[in-house]
Nucleic acid binder design. Structure first.
Lengths: 219, 219
DNA sequence: GTCAATATTTAGATAAGTCTAAAAATATAT
DNA sequence: ATATATTTTTAGACTTATCTAAATATTGAC
């Protein structure tokens, strides 16, 4: 049985691994994401390696084994299902659920998660547009672009976020942007790459940084 | 912020305290319920005492302070609401939810629990008939008797269990007994105090021990 | 009221996960 | 290619919650 700490490391390694198509993940990157010191990461990597959850070579970073990846996906599945539950059933806003899901994800009961999944009608994406692995670990791959890649005149459906920090979510709340919205690029400032966009009757300007964090499907 | 371990101790002290109208709870009784050694209990009692959650005098046992009792009730509230959720919404049987609720109860989010409470329509009792404290810590007091106290010819509604062990719950499942059932005492064996009872069209014999663990309201 | 039995506490040890500071390996710049 | 900067690891310490074994206090039997 894995500890909460071990589960957190696996989850973080998994997400770093899939962020870029990189073969192995560095100690420092993990430390930053887990919010700890590099020396603590080294200790944990040894432990995970002993348990055959990661392949670890000193100074060369780590990558997940099949078993490690399976555990990571289970934690992510649990996290995202709990987020769905909180938003869809309990009425939380999408920016209020992350921290609590960080706790709920560690509750050990496969049957609980599978029944929760059914209760929620087997959602494929969480409230931030991130895909939810099924019982076998399969998850849908989204073919989305960053809004910043669209040209003037293009439109896209907002399907996900590259960044789900509370800050950013609150920004989107203020702009009344939600998943599913159709965003049209009306203009683009070549100086700073900021964009004038329209959703429904609202027109407003967004920075390049914001546009890079909005994932859309072109239409 | 309390650790899971601290919360467990508070919960156990609360339940031992209310089991009997005893002023203070002994180290050994706590050890047995928490499934640990007396020496570990002593260590923890000192810590809880430092945090003003219990009044502790060496060799004289402990009792909860107001603050300690409030925390204990919060944990119990959380535990019982999660049990309701699992049984009423996810379709678990009443004997399958205790262990998982032991984990869920430690998730720290008042808002989560309050919203869960509303989502469940503010239940007053959990699936085993135990009362659920509300946000302020108030809980209904049940005026029930042990079935073993009824006389031949009496009837009662099954409203709760004194013991909710998996063993006992499975026994009740086998007998098809559920909360709300009307139980009539048809006969009583003076030798071993076993009872012949009837619910609906079923007649069967139960031991004195079983009768002592069934809480009924006389009708 | 004394003494044996029981309950409780103390002292010292262990394991998990973390930290700091120093050492070692790797990467980078010129 | 060598020196410097950066990254990673090691060594040793700390905290929390636990344990065992020994010491101490309380209870109960006579």
């Amino acid at each position: 049985m894995l500890s909460q700490s071990e589960e957190n490391y696996l989850k973080v390694i998994f997400s770093l691994q899939s962020e870029k198509e990189i073969k192995s993940v560095s100690t420092n990157d993990i430390a930053q994401k887990v919010q700890t010191k590099a020396s603590s990461v080294t200790d944990m990597l040894k432990k995970l390696s002993d348990k055959k959850l990661v392949i670890y070579k000193k100074y060369r970073g780590v990558k997940l084994t099949q078993s490690g990846e399976a555990f990571a996906k289970k934690v992510i599945r649990s996290h995202r299902l709990w987020e769905c539950f909180m938003v869809d059933k309990l009425g939380f806003a999408w920016n209020e659920v992350h921290e609590t899901a960080e706790q709920l994800e560690h509750v050990k009961s496969d049957e609980l998660i599978d029944k929760l999944d059914d209760f929620l009608a087997n959602p494929k994406f969480d409230p931030h547009g991130d895909p939810i692995p099924d019982k076998e670990g399969n998850m849908e791959v989204k073919h989305t672009l960053m809004l910043s890649n669209l040209d003037i005149g293009d439109s896209g459906i907002l399907e996900g976020l590259k960044n789900s920090s509370d800050n950013f979510l609150q920004y989107l709340n203020n702009k009344n942007l939600v998943l599913g919205d159709i965003i049209e690029v009306k203009n683009m400032e070549s100086f700073d790459n900021s964009m004038l966009v329209r959703t429904g009757n609202n027109e407003f300007t967004i920075s390049h940084e914001v546009a890079q964090n909005l994932l859309v499907k072109m239409i």
